[in-house]
């Protein structure tokens, strides 16, 4: 098998893309009026983007550059970008944005996925959380790698420093995607690339689609770096909470190792992203400031939607997934 199976369509847009990927002519579809954050549009975009990563089993790899599919993808992106530009307050004040992210909220009743999983989340909720995150972490750092040829000078060198660490600094067993797969296996989850796409809602796909959208468009390179900066600046304290939650739940060492590694890795990545990526990038290309903030705020906005989807389902005593997970072995 040369890639994951094609996902099941969730509406006319994703149906059209899946048809085209099966080798049939791309049906005519109307993107106007589609829910920009809905399951159908997000799954359609996910399928378009995966052609640039690992593709799908049985799908012609050269469909990556099929003009009809690319035309539809750009139409879908237009709808999503218009919604994000409307939902996200514009700003070009990068320093203020970063300062705000470096303040750590504390208190007993903070609402957040990592706070919930640290305090009281169940093992099943942790397994669901990891399932959602697998859509990104099994290709961790890949969407940001698109930005490397699109920026120059010191910012490029800084970005590669962080990416190199994400890819295990030359040691495949330390690649973050490998550590994530080992955590999944220890939690009794299928760690195959793309195994859980049919289970996750549009909110989950949207976060990763934003990374691919910004990575694959040179005009949005500032937003790509902004989105990456947000991850690196905010993940260390959240990872520490997940480590504590996993210890509370009695998870094994391979499970804990992924987030444990991110406490230290992202503490130093924060410094490198601020000093060696953002500062030289904005010195060389000051006009990118508004896009850097857009990348940060759009990622925060989509992250909040995903968080509410999960916490809302759990508060109602339901699963946050569209299909249940097989029971842990």
């Amino acid at each position: 098998m040369s890639g994951p199976p094609l996902p099941a369509p969730r509406g006319p847009l994703s149906e059209a893309v899946v048809q085209a990927l099966r080798g049939k002519p791309l049906p005519v579809v109307d993107v106007d009026g589609a829910d920009p954050y809905g399951d159908d549009l997000q799954l359609a975009l996910h399928c378009c983007y995966e052609l640039h990563y690992r593709g799908f089993d049985g799908v012609d790899a050269d469909l990556e550059w099929d003009p009809d599919l690319l035309r539809l993808r750009v139409e879908l992106e237009r709808v999503l970008l218009a919604a994000l530009r409307a939902d996200v307050e514009p700003s070009a004040a990068v320093d203020a944005e970063i300062e705000a992210l470096l303040v750590e909220p504390v208190g007993p009743d903070l609402r957040g996925l990592s706070h919930h999983l640290k305090r009281e989340g169940t093992l099943e909720q942790l397994r669901e959380y990891v399932t959602h995150r697998s859509v990104y972490h099994l290709k961790e750092a890949d969407p940001q790698a698109w930005a490397i040829p699109r920026i120059g000078g010191a910012a490029k060198a800084g970005l590669v420093t962080v990416e190199h660490d994400e890819y295990g600094s030359g040691r495949p067993e330390r690649m973050h995607s490998t550590l994530f797969a080992e955590m999944m296996t220890e939690l009794g989850l299928d760690a195959a690339y793309g195994a859980h796409v049919d289970r996750v809602p549009g909110e989950t796909l949207a976060e990763v689609n934003l990374m691919s959208l910004c990575g694959l468009r040179r005009s949005l390179r500032g937003a790509s770096v902004g989105q990456f900066a947000l991850v690196e600046l905010t993940s260390s304290p959240g990872s520490e909470r997940l480590v504590r939650g996993m210890r509370r739940l009695g998870c094994g060492p391979a499970a804990i190792r992924f987030y444990d590694e991110h406490v230290e890795a992202d503490a130093v990545h924060e410094q490198v992203v601020r000093r060696d990526v953002l500062a030289p990038l904005l010195a060389a290309e000051p006009d990118l400031a508004a896009d850097v903030v857009f990348g940060i705020r759009a990622a925060l906005f989509l992250g909040d939607r995903l968080q509410e989807r999960l916490l809302g389902a759990w508060e109602r005593g339901e699963s946050s997934l569209l299909q249940p997970l097989p029971a842990a072995a």
Binding site: V103, P105, V106, G107, L110, T234, S236, E240
Partner: peptide, 22 residues
């Protein structure tokens, strides 16, 4: 840092807060 001598971002300014991301 709880992982002294390696930084874990414990130097960050902390504020009591009701809402949070992550």
């Amino acid at each position: 840092s709880k992982r002294y001598p390696i930084c874990d971002t414990a130097h960050r300014r902390k504020v009591r807060h009701e809402e949070d991301h992550g």
